[in-house]
């Protein structure tokens, strides 16, 4: 007995933990991976893809699916698809007990229906993303609990930073594991904010003192957006704006992280007026590393999920960069 224990101990001393696996969220309307996207998945050895199947919103007095993803092209056979469902907080605030039962059945049926068009393998895990509050927590947690009872799926949920920091106040969802979303830390509508996607001071302030009650993996941001301010007021986000368009000096003038519209023009389908201001927010390699180093001691992540997979990130982040992020979590 003693010799077995010694062996285990010795083996344990010699090796550092393997780096966490690297996965991605797919948060687009169509599942139609480009060659670049597929190559990125291959190069970082991604085995799991979290595909948003649909959102659930509360409309006309009942929960309804919206923005249902349309599969256009199959996925490599060895890629595990984790159906991911975004639920608006409003839904869980207003859904009645009777509606909740019906909702569970509807969601299961809908997920199965979409999954049959996406992947030949059975579903092993489903993830639910809902920014619950005190007014919706009880219903959301009940939804998760019942979902687990009704299916054989592992259930995971996204966890916001404040929920990580204050679990006794916000509650811990009854799921198999959580994915900590380390992004959208700042106040996007605040004009004085420099980067609302990831602010290290904000992240630092959310580092918890104790352990979280369920295993936690981590989601890190790999996206860029432009925050559009008009007449001094934030009016919309423009996702993945083209940097080459923004560098067109006949239409835009750049100063630090601000870009001013000097000639009214379209950008990503939005008509911008002269005088509009865009705050371009993106995450560079250094910031991503810093973030990983800061949060690593506070959680034991086995998986890093990058938000989110699209063609623009394949041009911005090399697979070495993403792998290095993974290595930070393994030391």
């Amino acid at each position: 007995m003693f010799s077995v224990l010694l062996l285990v101990t010795l083996l344990g001393c010699g090796n550092s933990e393997p780096p966490p696996s690297l996965s991605f969220y797919h948060w687009q309307s169509y599942l139609d991976l480009t060659t670049e996207e597929d190559e990125l998945l291959l190069s970082v050895g991604t085995k799991r893809l979290y595909v948003r199947y649909f959102d659930i919103d509360f409309q006309g007095g009942k929960p309804v699916p919206v923005g249902v993803m349309i599969p256009r092209k199959g996925i490599r056979e060895n890629m595990e698809i984790i159906p991911t469902i975004f639920i608006t907080e409003k839904t869980m605030r207003y859904v009645s007990n009777e509606q909740l039962e019906e909702l569970l059945d509807n969601v299961i049926r809908k997920i199965n229906g979409i999954h049959s068009k996406v992947s030949p393998t059975d579903i092993s895990e489903v993830q639910f993303d809902c920014d619950w509050t005190a007014g919706s927590r009880e219903r959301f947690f009940l939804f998760l609990k019942k979902m687990k009872e009704k299916t054989t799926w592992k259930i995971s949920a996204t966890i916001r930073l404040h929920q990580w920091k204050y679990p006794s106040k916000t509650g811990v969802p009854p799921v198999d594991r959580g994915v900590l979303m380390v992004y959208n830390t700042g106040k996007v509508s605040d004009k004085n904010e420099e980067n609302s996607i990831l602010d290290m001071d904000d992240v630092r302030s959310y580092l918890p003192e104790g352990e979280y009650d369920i295993p936690l993996d981590v989601a890190l941001p790999l996206f860029r957006w432009a925050v559009l301010f008009r007449d001094g007021k934030m009016i919309r986000l423009i996702h993945s704006p083209s940097l080459s368009e923004l560098s067109d000096t006949s239409r835009f003038s750049k100063r630090n992280h601000w870009t001013k519209v000097i000639k009214s023009t379209y950008l990503n389908g939005y008509y911008l007026y002269e005088g509009d201001e865009l705050r371009i927010e993106e995450i560079d390699r250094g910031l991503l590393m810093e973030c990983a180093q800061m949060i690593k001691p506070s959680l034991n992540a086995k998986e890093i999920v990058f938000y989110h997979l699209d063609t623009t990130i394949t041009k911005t982040y090399s697979h070495e960069t993403l792998e290095n992020i993974g290595h930070i979590f393994s030391h």
Binding site: R230, D231, K233, I235, R236, S264, Y271, Y273, E274
Partner: peptide
């Protein structure tokens, strides 16, 4: 139709 977008600069 372009002017109808909320927050548009209608006068332009």
């Amino acid at each position: 139709m372009r002017a109808m977008v909320p927050d548009s600069h209608v006068v332009e």
